[in-house]
Simulated assay, not measured.
Amino acid sequence: MKWVGSLSTRVSLEAAVQEVTQQVLSGLEGRSPDLGILFVSNTFTSEYPRLLPLVAEKINIKHLVGCSGGGIVGDGQELEQLPALSLLVASLPNVEIETFHIVEEELPDLDSPPDTWQALIGADPREQPSFVILGDPFSFPITDFLRGLDFAYPSAVKVGGLGSSGGLGANALFCSDRNGNYKLHRQGLVGVALQGDITIDAVVAQGCRPIGQTLQVSDCDRNIILALDDKSPLEVLQDVVSELSPSDRDLAQHSLFIGVVMNEFKLMPEQGDFLIRNIIGVDPKTGAIAVGDRMRPGQRIQLHLRDAKASEEDLEEALTRYHNQVGANPPSAAVMFSCLGRGERLYGKPNFDSALFGKYMGNIPVGGFFCSGEIGPVGGTTFLHGYTSAFGMFRVRK
């Protein structure tokens, strides 16, 4: 397995393609490029139709996926709203690669059996595939797709992100078809399934820290929490916030979230054991709280705060834990999917997540982009996140 990453900041699309393809061909040292993952800045919006023909002129990558984004990641840099082109390629002997493009009309019903979803994707669940998924947020029901994919491939890791070039029809999705031809799509979802001598590990940092104690949902209606520990949710929230430091109380005015405990059998959940969801409204008359996800009675939750410090600590803890887990079999490369709300606007300095990643993972090839929604697992289930950095780590399967 050989991975090579490249990044160009040339303002000319021709020059950018020339630069990234030269870099990866040189790094492959004569090996065949079996997989390419391509990300392009939305500063090239008008030139999306020209990109794939230019790439095809310079390099023959057997399987290709990619998309456009409001910021591009590569070579240790995070280029936000600047011209950039990132290409991550790999020579993958003994790896079977299946790319796919799906539009909403092709999705099976959620009650369909697993083999219906497997036929759509084309990957054999017995081969333990891993997935990279790139979608358009305006034209595709990504949450339904993730539910179906988890149903069909329950043990598979899925990571990815949603394009962030702009509004309806503004995003570009790239995917090679089964004849090896590169196609530009304006809607739906593209992805790649990898099976054989490769695995993808997911590292998901949601950027929050827990406050207060865990609470139990006593009563709820869909996404409305009506009682917590048999008390008014608003009163419980106010009690927790009143015990915070003055700075955290100020932060809670605009950066307070709900964390849902994902492992119901874990008595003392820790940072990383929660699925973070927005508080989208409070009814002062009834004390009910509306949450950005469906709730159910008996679930445990904990309030969370998000800021730059919490985001840094959460990512550092996640990378430390992963670094200790993989030990002598570290990743060969990675893809990074980071929220548009992170980056320099959160940390006040550039390349923050990439630099922290490099501190723990070393100088491995990385490609990625800033998303309008990040895809990654929490507690064994795949979710669409916000304000998150989700990494897919490519390793040789042992």
Results as ranks from 00 to 15, higher is better:
M1I: 11
W3F: 15
V4I: 15
T9A: 11
A16G: 08
V17A: 10
G30K: 10
P33D: 07
L38G: 05
L38Y: 09
S41H: 13
N42E: 14
F44N: 04
T45L: 11
P49A: 05
R50S: 13
L51P: 00
L51A: 04
L51E: 10
L52N: 04
P53Q: 07
E57V: 06
K58E: 14
S68W: 06
G69H: 02
G71L: 08
I72K: 08
D75M: 12
Q77Y: 12
E78F: 09
L79Y: 04
L79K: 11
L79P: 11
A84T: 08
A84D: 05
L87F: 10
N94E: 15
V95F: 02
T99I: 01
F100R: 08
E104D: 14
E104H: 13
P108Q: 03
D109S: 15
L110N: 10
L110A: 12
P113F: 12
P113R: 13
P113S: 14
P114C: 03
P114N: 06
W117Y: 12
L120Y: 07
A123V: 13
P129F: 06
S130F: 08
I133A: 04
L134I: 09
P141A: 07
P141E: 10
T143P: 01
D144F: 08
R147Q: 13
G148H: 09
D150I: 04
A156D: 00
V157L: 00
G160L: 04
G161I: 03
G163Y: 01
G166V: 03
G167A: 08
L168S: 07
G169C: 09
S176V: 11
G180Y: 09
Y182Q: 10
H185L: 02
H185F: 15
R186M: 15
R186A: 11
L189Q: 14
A193E: 10
L194S: 09
D197A: 12
D197Y: 08
T199S: 12
I200W: 05
I200D: 13
V203E: 09
G207V: 05
G212R: 03
G212D: 02
N223Y: 09
A227P: 02
A227N: 04
K231N: 09
E235T: 12
V236A: 00
D239E: 13
V241Y: 09
R249T: 01
A252L: 06
I258D: 03
V260H: 00
V261R: 01
N263H: 15
F265D: 13
F265H: 14
F265M: 14
K266Q: 12
M268L: 14
E270L: 14
G272H: 01
I280Y: 01
V291A: 08
G292K: 01
D293A: 12
M295H: 09
P297Q: 08
R300P: 00
R300S: 02
L303D: 00
L305Y: 04
E317L: 15
L319M: 10
R321G: 07
V326F: 13
S332A: 07
C339A: 06
G341F: 00
G343E: 01
L346M: 13
K349M: 08
N351R: 04
D353W: 02
A355T: 11
G362K: 02
P365I: 01
F370V: 00
E374W: 00
G379Y: 10
A390H: 01
F391E: 03
G392L: 03
G392K: 04
